[in-house]
Amino acid sequence: MPPADPWEYTLYIPNDLRAVTVARRTLRLILTMHGLIRLTDTAELLAAELVSNAVRHTKGPAALRVRWSAGVLRIGAWDADPEPPPPPGELEVLGEEGRGLALVAACADLWGWQPLARHGNRGKYVWCELAAA
């Protein structure tokens, strides 16, 4: 049974591709402990894409945020680059670049981005949602 009470975790990560594995394993543990194991495989894929983009395309720190509220799991990655991700209509024509966000758009129930500042650093927050049902 999914948890009734909302919760949120934030994992601050360095600009290092190994952070993708750390984020995936941390997310798996969080979801398992909260009884959301059936969302784990898709959630791990989405988190890996978001965190990978955050550490590959920026030079600063990043963060993974996972939030559960009202039957919806939101996974997001903050990075220090304030530039928006490519619009959904351009994802298919980018070739090698942009495939991760196309995958996020295909697998998530909803996704988006917003400008965000964290600890005095400007950047953006790219997020996606999975419903528990």
Rank of each mutant, 00 (worst) to 15 (best):
A131M: 04
Y12M: 01
V55Y: 03
G123I: 00
T32Q: 08
I30M: 14
T21I: 14
D16R: 13
M1N: 05
T40H: 06
P87E: 15
T26K: 10
G35H: 12
L91C: 07
T10Y: 13
L29A: 15
P88Q: 05
P84E: 04
K124G: 12
K124V: 14
L64I: 04
L46C: 09
G89F: 11
P88S: 08
N121E: 02
V126R: 09
T10I: 13
D5F: 14
P87S: 14
L116V: 09
S69T: 07
P85L: 02
E129C: 02
E49H: 05
R28Q: 13
G89V: 06
M1T: 10
E92Q: 08
L45D: 05
A19H: 08
E49P: 08
R118G: 01
R56Q: 06
L101A: 06
V51L: 03
R74N: 00
P85R: 03
A62L: 03
R118C: 00
W127D: 10
N15D: 06
W111V: 00
P3V: 14
L39H: 05
L27T: 13
R24P: 13
S52Q: 15
A47I: 07
A132F: 03
G95D: 04
G98Q: 09
G95S: 03
G89S: 13
A108E: 12
T10C: 11
R28C: 12
A131E: 07
R28G: 14
E44Y: 01
W113V: 10
P61L: 06
L73M: 08
L91I: 03
K124Y: 04
G76K: 04
R56L: 06
L73I: 07
E49V: 01
V104Q: 06
H57W: 08
A133R: 14
L103W: 08
L116N: 02
A77R: 05
D109C: 01
R99K: 11
L73K: 04
E97T: 15
L46T: 08
G76I: 07
Y125K: 05
D16H: 15
P85K: 00
S52T: 12
R28Y: 13
D41L: 13
A132S: 10
A70P: 02
E83P: 00
L103M: 14
V20K: 05
P87Y: 07
L36A: 02
R67V: 08
A62R: 01
W68V: 05
